[in-house]
Design a protein around this nucleic acid. Sequence first.
DNA 1: GTAATTTCTTATCATATGTAAAGTAGTTTC
DNA 2: GAAACTACTTTACATATGATAAGAAATTAC
Lengths: 187, 187
Amino acid sequence: MKTLLKHIQSIHPISKEAEKALLEISKEVRFQKGTDVQSIGHTCKTIYFVKDGCVRIYYFKEDIDITESFEFENAFVARAESLFTGKPSLKAIQAIEDTLLIAIDSNRLFQLFDSHHDLERLFRKIIEASYVNTVNRIESLQFHTADERYLHLLKDHKDILKRVPLKYIASYLGITPVSLSRIRAHK
Amino acid sequence: MKTLLKHIQSIHPISKEAEKALLEISKEVRFQKGTDVQSIGHTCKTIYFVKDGCVRIYYFKEDIDITESFEFENAFVARAESLFTGKPSLKAIQAIEDTLLIAIDSNRLFQLFDSHHDLERLFRKIIEASYVNTVNRIESLQFHTADERYLHLLKDHKDILKRVPLKYIASYLGITPVSLSRIRAHK
DNA sequence: GTAATTTCTTATCATATGTAAAGTAGTTTC
DNA sequence: GAAACTACTTTACATATGATAAGAAATTAC
């Protein structure tokens, strides 16, 4: 669990008691490459931290598999639309590689917020950062060409091509695999 | 300020003391149609609540004016990328109509979080809801046609066509005004 | 109220991306 | 190691959107 605590310290330092309380509601879970961590229709009650490996959030639009996001080592993952609304999620979380996650029980976490103010602040800051990221992604989808978005993704995640199938990258960029192939061929 | 307090109560009820503290760091400000509430290059230290009128967040990409978002009555507005990072914003906030805003001093608000846990929880929930909204907007930009996005916007904001120039709506949808005209002509 | 300015629409042509189908390469299964 | 399957690429054609320019409509300024 050291990786998680270290990552947390870099965002917002919390007390020893808060660390202890957090670890009590967390456990390590492993998933084989290709398996669903959480499936479509399930209400999200877990916040995951990626210790090793990588995952994606995906959903289906008219039978087409669309990757909403990727997460790699040292990042949190949750299906926000379900976690924060209590509704069943239309999306699933899948392990793209053999993956080691730390699962945090969100209901118990939200309860801890009452007694550990610093934990609530930590997660407020985590959500703020995620929010800034999604706003930037909107900007990218709004006014960059698919070509630019592809190059930008490679810059941000230098090893993504070795770790993630192109078909997932294509839908993440908002284009078809055929179109991504074309873009790659022109480089 | 009643509008603000009423809106807050519907998200997360706070104590009378917290309400009082919040009002002390808030003030009403008016902006004429077309004027900038905050300009590009300014570091965002204010969270606004729209009491009457409407605003947009916009920026320039290579001399082209792009609307990132609109906000109407009973919504909060802030340039998250600047507010949460402390960096100067590349974006501006502009009044689209004569607008009455409530300006909340963000530094003093963040200080209040130390003494008023319920205020921090309130704003955590506000950010969570904004986050869910932006994730949904990504989905919309990723795999809906411009045509679908336009119809969806009209559904969500029935009076938007009467209040907001089409050129702003076009860039918000990620298309040119010419393209929006075409889409509208086919209905 | 007229002129000037801005906003919106229409038309034409160029380009990027989608769809479908076929082929190639790589991986998995037995 | 052959067969089956999956991932990726390539080609041909269709469609949506972009760029530019010109005109119409609406708004603003005087």
